[in-house]
């Protein structure tokens, strides 16, 4: 009797062990991935969320998307804390403040949660990988290509958020370098750089002032998705349509009317849907043990294509999108 129960429990133990082993070693789906944007309701981040959801569905993972309705870092930290309580396998986020989210993200990593950032990075030791939408040089080139569609030559002016905003300053630095050294862009002459603080009304005023100060101005270029559409509005309202153009990064929905009525010719961005898809897909690969974050490693992220891991876990998405009259409708965000 005793022997039989010993035998039984032995068999049960082996069975349980086999189960546990197959569960731990071969887990390839059913991960819980939680995503939070800088703020919800913005078409850009909603598109990224759709991309993340599609990647998770494709891979058989559970996907949760949540966050506050305005960009407030304390609310983002609260959201992340709530995520932690729900014990996800991974967190994907666009950080509002790279430092302030670091403590809670470090806590997450200590609990074995994979942390991925996209669009805006967190402190490097607080996350596993960062999906950078575009390198500074690539962004600069894309905006200049758009400007070439607007005008074959002439005076250009830049509008940035502030002298200290890191990405805008870098974009302008590289655009100036290209205009100085690259024959393709030497047709342009930089006449001014102004600051509009990512504010709609300020951007509008700055654009009006630029046109008054520089009668021969051809293109106003801004990598602020607020300033570029505001520039288009100012050009339209002041009767400069067709003589001066606004370009740079903008959401398609914000500049669609200007492209369609012909007052503007080209704006640029990247595909936030695919960026969200890629970040979520790669996060899954990391969870399944199929992605090594050593620099130089290449991996395939489903329908988003192939990518290479860079220094410090940074992966550049790097696919600029240019919107013209013909393509703006297909953007879908």
């Amino acid at each position: 009797m005793q022997r039989r129960s010993a035998l039984l429990s032995g068999a049960a133990a082996i069975f349980a062990f086999a189960l546990a082993f197959s569960g731990a070693g071969a887990k390839d789906s059913g991960f819980k991935i939680m995503m939070t944007p800088k703020w919800t309701g913005f078409p850009y981040f909603e598109a990224a969320a759709r991309g993340g959801k599609d990647a998770a569905d494709e891979l058989g993972d559970q996907f949760v998307y949540a966050g506050a309705d305005h960009a407030d870092v304390t609310l983002q930290v609260e959201t992340l804390q709530n995520f932690l309580t729900q014990k996800p396998d991974a967190i994907v986020l666009a950080a509002i403040d790279l430092n302030a989210v670091a403590p809670v993200l470090k806590q997450a990593r200590k609990q074995g949660i994979v942390v991925t950032t996209f669009d805006a990075d967190a402190a490097a030791d607080a996350r596993d990988m960062f999906f950078n939408q575009m390198s500074y040089k690539q962004a600069a080139k894309t905006m200049l290509d758009c400007a070439l569609m607007d005008a074959p030559e002439g005076e250009v002016a830049f509008v940035a958020a502030s002298p200290t905003s890191p990405n805008h300053s870098a974009h302008i630095k590289y655009m100036k370098e290209y205009i100085q050294n690259d024959p393709k862009y030497q047709v342009f002459k930089v006449v001014d750089t102004q600051y509009a603080n990512d504010e709609d009304a300020k951007s509008y005023d700055v654009a009006i002032n630029l046109m008054q100060a520089h009668p021969n101005l051809k293109v106003i270029i801004s990598s602020s998705a607020v300033s570029a559409p505001a520039g288009a509005r100012a050009i339209d309202a002041s009767g400069h349509a067709g003589k001066v153009f606004s370009t740079g990064f903008a959401l398609p929905s914000a500049i669609k009317t200007y492209l369609e009525d012909g007052s503007e010719k080209c704006f640029a961005l990247w595909n936030p849907y695919e960026l969200g898809y890629l970040a979520t897909y790669a996060t899954h690969l990391k969870l399944a043990g199929k992605l090594d974050l050593k620099p130089g490693t290449t991996f395939k992220a489903g329908k988003a294509g192939e990518y290479t891991v860079g220094e410090g876990g940074e992966i550049v998405y790097g696919k600029p999108l240019m919107f013209t009259k013909d393509t703006v409708d297909k953007a879908g965000f």
Partner: peptide, 16 residues
């Protein structure tokens, strides 16, 4: 309220 709605991943605008 914020804790409960946050854990249930209630959408931001609804919480506001």
């Amino acid at each position: 309220m914020r804790n409960g709605m946050g854990l249930a991943n209630v959408a931001g605008p609804t919480q506001t």
